[in-house]
């Protein structure tokens, strides 16, 4: 576990080697068929368990409240787009969505900026204290956020940052630094130094080397860290729950949790299902676009930790 290199997962869709083809032939036996049958059955049932709740959620989001209660299994007779309008406007999901977008845009940008600068210096320059600073950042990966919650609340309150966008941006960024620095550190270490040396010989300053040479080369790593932080911060609940008490400033997960209690009293289930669907859309888009990179990022952090 000593090294921090991030290695991409081998592509599983590779062309089968002769031995694999020999294996495939082996499958065509009675035991092989039984094995395939049982495993497919199991895999299919798990897939249904994962997909079904989401499919049901989306279907329900298009129904009237009456349909939800009296015909929970049928498709909606006519899709109720009004549910989404109600969720967006009356139930304030639109506002929460906007708050989340502002905060997360700010915090992901700041996280990428600060962590790439810090990781680069720690990975490519030797100076006294380098190790201490690196391990100091790593400590943050081990402590539960819970422990910091009470002092953090009073600190943020005393700095008059409670319930502000910039307050949340700063705190999100601070708690995202350990993982991001850890990940990017490994990335900058593996980059070749020839290009940077050539640039220096051509008279480029340290700054120019970083911005014009190293950062573009580190782009794949930055994208992975960016996606990872986007998801983590978009889904963040514990920190805003404590630091963001003003309902007008609620971020999406807070708003959703609040709504699930409130709509229960108002019996407006259809709007709640529409709200859930709206909340999940950005996550689904990001997942669809970056699924492979995301798997890499999540496991690279775990494997080499």
């Amino acid at each position: 576990m000593g090294t921090n290199h991030v290695q991409p997962l081998p592509d599983t869709r590779a062309i089968p080697s002769p031995s694999q083809r020999a294996r495939a032939r082996r499958e065509i036996t009675l035991g092989g068929i039984a094995f395939t049958g049982i495993s497919q059955l199991f895999l299919l049932s798990w897939a249904v368990m994962v997909v079904f709740p989401f499919a049901w959620m989306i279907m329900t989001a298009f129904k009237t409240d009456k349909e939800i209660f009296f015909s929970p299994w049928q498709l909606p007779t006519s899709p109720q787009l009004g549910n989404f309008a109600r969720a967006w406007n009356q139930a304030s999901i639109g506002r929460y969505f906007g708050n989340s977008a502002i905060v997360v845009t700010g915090s992901v940008t700041l996280t990428l900026l600060l962590s790439s600068m810090a990781a680069y210096t720690l990975a490519r320059y030797s100076f006294p204290g380098n190790r201490i600073i690196y391990y100091m950042f790593l400590v943050g990966l081990m402590f539960p956020v819970f422990l910091a919650l009470v002092p953090l609340f009073f600190l943020v309150r005393d700095l008059h940052l409670l319930g502000t966008y910039h307050g949340l941006i700063l705190v999100y960024t601070a708690y995202s630094l350990p993982f991001s620095i850890f990940f990017l550190y490994g990335f900058f270490r593996t980059l070749p130094s020839e290009v940077a040396e050539a640039a220096i010989i051509d008279g480029a300053s340290d700054y120019a080397v970083f911005w014009r040479v190293m950062l573009p080369m580190a782009q794949p790593g930055l994208i992975t860290v960016g996606i990872f932080n986007f998801l983590g911060q978009w889904n963040q609940y514990l920190l805003p729950l404590v630091l963001n008490p003003n309902r007008d400033r609620y971020v999406l997960p807070q708003g959703l949790a609040f709504l699930s209690i409130q709509q229960g009293y108002q019996n407006d289930w259809s709007a709640l299902f529409a709200a859930l669907t709206i909340t999940l859309i950005p996550t689904i888009v990001v997942y669809a676009l970056f699924q492979r990179r995301l798997e890499q990022g999540l496991t690279a952090g775990a494997l080499k930790g």
Binding site: M136, F137, V139, G140, A148, A174
Partner: peptide, 11 residues
């Protein structure tokens, strides 16, 4: 910048 932010809000 990273050290200050991390020091103030985390450590």
């Amino acid at each position: 910048p990273a050290i200050i932010l991390y020091g103030v809000f985390v450590l």
